[in-house]
Design a binder for these strands. Structure first.
Length: 573
RNA sequence: GGUGGGGUAGCUCAGCUGGUUAGAGCGCAGGACUCAUAAUCCUGAGGUCGUGAGUUCAAGUCUCACUCUCACUACCA
C-alpha cells in the first residue's frame, strides 16, 4: 500500500476535447487510478481545466461573452463530458482558481528573489484595430519564402519554413483581418531556465520507468541548450503579475502570467482546492517536508506536453528551493490520429467527447482507446478498428462468455451456484492460466503498459471460453449432473472474476456483471497476492448463491452503423 | 533546415542488455462443438523484420548512410 498522486495534462478550456486528448492523458490516467485503487493504494487523481491564454479570450469574444463567463460554461461542459466517460477524478479543478492565483504569484516572487527571473524587453506585434498584442501565430501575411498568402507568423503552412512575424509581407491580424498592425516594445518576465540545466539534466538522468519518448524529448531540449522563457503575456485574462506585498507591479498592469507557467502549478492549486472543499490535507501529497516524500507522483500527458513537464515546470519547482514534490513517473503518449491525419475542430474532422457518447457507450470507447493506446507511436483511429474491438473483444469474447454461462446456470440450475463434481484436467489447466496471467496483468498495470494490460485481460477472458469448451458442462449434463455442476460453478466464478478485473477499463459493464452476480461492493477489490488466493478464485462463490444473467452486455456495431458514422464524421477537407 | 518517435505477417502491434525453426490479436482457410450475441474452441497458411553497407562466430536487435511517415522546433496550448 502506498500513496500515489496522479495528474493528467490539463485539457485546454477552448471546447470539449477530442478522442485524441482523451486517449493520451485523461483516460489512461483514469484507468491507472482505478487499478491502483483496486490494489489498495491510496490514490489522489487530480485534473483541471487550463483556462488562460489568448485562445480562451478569442473564443469568448466569438461567443460574445466575458472570458470568465465563457470559462465557467466550458468548465462545466468538460466536467460533464468527463463524468460521462466515467473519469474518476478525485478533483476536477480550474487553473483560474484563487489558490492558483496565489500559488503562481508565490512561485514567481520566490523565483525572482532567488535570481531566476528577470525583466527583459522584447518586440511584439500589436494590432491597433483589435487593441491587443498578437501572439506570433495570430499574425498572418505573405510568406517571404514561398509567397503563400496565409502564412502564420511562426511558421508557413505551405513551405514549412519557420518565420518571425516581422518577416511577413503585408502582415495582418488573424483575429480581425486588420492590416493596422505594428511592432511595439513590451517588457516581460523571463524564467532563467538555462541556469538550472545542469540540475535538470541530473534529474532527468535519474528518471526510472519513463517511456523512451519522455526522456528523449527532455534530453533533446537539454542538448540543444535551454533558452530562457518568457513567462508573462500582454493579456487581460489570466493571473496578474504582482509584487511580493500584493501590490500591482509597475509596468505590468496590462499583463498576466503565461498559461504554461501557471497551468502546471494548478496541479498543486487544484489539490489545495480539493483539500479545502473536502477537509483534507494537501501538503502530504505535495510537500516533501509534510509527508509527500513517500508519495509516488505519476503524470500522464501527450508528447506535446513533455518539454513543459520535464523542463519549465521542474525549473519552477527546483528553482523555488522549497520542498515541493517532483514527478516520479512521467507517462507520455503519442497521438491518436484520425485516419492518419490530425483531428481538427475547424474542419470538423474527428470525434469529440460529447459526440462520442451519442454514438456508443463510454465503455466501448474506453476499451478501444486503451487497447490501442498510442504508447510507442501514433495510432490511427478508424471506424473499422473500433467496430472490430467492440464486436470481437467486448461482445464476442467477454459478453458472450458471461451470457452463455449465466443463461445456462439460470436455465439448468435455477440461477444458483451448484455444488458437486470433481476437479479434472480442465480446472488444472485453467488454474495454471490464471496463476500465470493475473500476476502478469497486475505488473502491466503497475508499469503503466496499457496495451499489454489490455491484451492480457483479453487473454484471460478467452481462457474462460476455452475452459468451457474443455469442461463442456452441457455434455456432462446428460450423464453426470454433478460434473456439469462443476463446469457451471467454475464458469460463474470466472464471470465474477472477469467483472472484477474489468473494472478499471469498462466500469459500467463491470458493475452490471458484478451486480448480476450479487457480488457486494466491498468485495470487488483486487487481492491476488498468492497462488493460493488465485486457486480459490474459481471456487469463491458459496453453494446456493443466487445469480442472474445480465443479458446482452454489449450490442454489436453493425456495418451499417460504420457507414453512417464514417459519412457523418468524414470532415470537410 | 534541425531534432525526436516510428517503419516487423493483409491490418493493428510485441520482440529486454545481439544467440536455436521471428511472436500475439484481428482477418483468411479447414475442422470441432451446440450452452451462448451465426457466438466459442482447435489446426493451418501468410514475413529475405524500410533500403544499402559495416562490426561480429552470430543482427529485427549495435554502427553508418539513405529513404518514407508522424511529431516537435520555445509567443497556440
Amino acid at each position: 500500500m502506498s500513496k500515489i498522486l496522479i495528474t493528467s495534462a490539463l485539457p485546454y478550456i477552448n471546447g470539449v476535447k477530442h478522442l485524441g486528448n482523451l486517449a493520451g492523458s485523461m483516460l489512461p490516467a483514469d484507468v491507472y487510478a482505478r487499478a491502483m485503487r483496486l490494489l489498495g493504494h491510496e490514490v489522489l487523481y487530480i485534473c483541471a481545466t487550463d483556462e488562460h491564454g489568448t485562445p480562451a479570450e478569442l473564443a469568448a469574444q466569438v461567443e460574445g461573452e466575458e472570458t470568465a463567463a465563457y470559462c465557467n460554461t466550458m468548465h462545466e461542459a468538460q466536467k460533464s463530458a468527463g463524468d460521462k466517460f466515467k473519469l474518476s477524478y478525485d478533483y476536477f479543478g480550474r487553473s483560474s482558481s484563487l489558490n492558483n492565483h496565489k500559488l503562481t504569484q508565490h512561485f514567481a516572487n520566490i523565483l525572482e528573489e532567488r535570481g531566476l527571473i528577470e525583466e527583459r524587453v522584447s518586440q511584439q506585434v500589436y494590432s491597433n484595430a483589435d487593441g491587443r498584442f498578437l501572439p506570433d501565430r495570430y499574425v498572418e501575411g505573405i510568406c517571404p519564402n514561398c509567397g503563400f498568402e496565409k502564412a502564420r507568423g511562426d511558421q508557413c503552412d505551405s513551405c514549412g519554413k519557420l518565420l518571425d512575424p516581422i518577416d511577413l509581407i503585408e502582415p495582418y491580424s488573424a483575429v480581425s483581418g486588420s492590416k493596422d498592425v505594428e511592432i511595439r516594445d513590451t517588457n516581460h518576465l523571463y524564467l532563467k531556465q538555462s541556469s538550472l540545466s545542469g540540475d535538470l539534466l541530473d534529474w532527468v538522468n535519474k528518471a526510472e520507468g519513463w517511456p523512451h519518448l519522455a526522456t528523449s524529448i527532455a534530453h533533446k531540449w537539454l542538448a540543444e541548450g535551454l533558452r530562457d522563457r518568457s513567462i508573462t503575456r500582454d493579456l487581460k485574462w489570466g493571473i496578474p503579475v504582482l509584487n511580493a506585498d500584493g501590490s500591482a507591479r509597475e509596468g505590468f498592469e496590462g499583463k498576466v502570467f503565461y498559461v504554461w507557467f501557471d497551468a502546471p502549478i494548478a496541479y498543486i492549486a487544484a489539490t489545495q482546492d480539493w483539500a479545502e472543499e473536502n477537509g483534507k490535507d494537501w501538503k502530504s501529497w505535495w510537500r516533501t517536508d509534510a509527508g509527500a516524500e513517500d508519495t509516488k507522483y505519476v503524470q500522464f500527458m501527450g508528447k506535446d506536453n513533455v518539454a513543459f513537464h520535464t523542463l519549465s515546470f521542474p525549473t519552477t519547482i527546483l528553482g523555488s528551493g522549497e520542498p515541493w514534490k517532483l514527478v516520479d513517473c512521467l507517462k507520455a503518449f503519442n497521438w491518436v490520429t484520425w485516419y492518419g491525419g490530425k483531428f481538427s475542430t475547424s474542419q470538423k474532422r474527428g470525434v469529440f467527447m460529447d459526440q462520442a457518447l451519442d454514438i456508443a457507450p463510454s465503455d466501448y470507447w474506453r476499451w478501444h482507446l486503451i487497447a490501442n493506446a498510442p504508447e510507442s507511436s501514433d495510432t490511427a483511429f478508424t471506424w473499422e478498428e473500433f467496430q472490430l474491438s467492440v464486436n470481437s473483444d467486448l461482445a464476442n469474447v467477454l459478453g458472450n462468455f458471461v451470457n452463455r454461462i449465466t443463461k445456462y446456470a439460470c436455465g439448468k440450475f435455477e440461477g444458483k451456484v451448484p455444488k458437486g463434481g470433481k476437479k479434472t484436467a480442465a480446472e488444472e489447466w485453467l488454474l495454471k492460466e490464471l496463476n500465470q496471467r493475473i500476476p502478469l496483468l497486475i505488473s502491466f498495470y503497475e508499469k503503466r503498459e496499457f496495451r499489454k494490460a489490455m491484451s492480457e485481460t483479453r487473454a484471460i477472458w478467452a481462457a474462460g471460453n476455452e475452459y468451457l469448451t474443455q469442461a463442456a458442462p452441457w455434455t456432462h449434463y446428460k450423464t453426470d449432473i454433478n460434473q456439469a455442476a462443476m463446469g457451471v460453478r467454475v464458469g460463474l466464478n470466472l464471470v465474477s472474476l472477469f467483472g472484477i478485473l474489468a473494472q478499471p477499463i469498462i466500469p459500467d459493464a463491470a458493475s452490471k456483471i458484478l451486480d448480476a452476480m450479487n457480488i457486494p461492493e466491498n468485495n470487488r477489490s483486487w487481492n491476488f497476492g498468492s497462488s493460493e488466493v488465485i486457486t480459490k478464485l474459481i471456487d469463491a462463490l458459496p453453494f446456493g448463491h443466487e445469480i442472474n444473467s445480465p443479458n446482452v452486455l454489449f450490442a454489436k456495431i453493425e456495418d451499417n452503423d460504420v457507414e453512417i458514422w464514417a459519412e457523418k464524421y468524414k470532415g470537410n477537407d
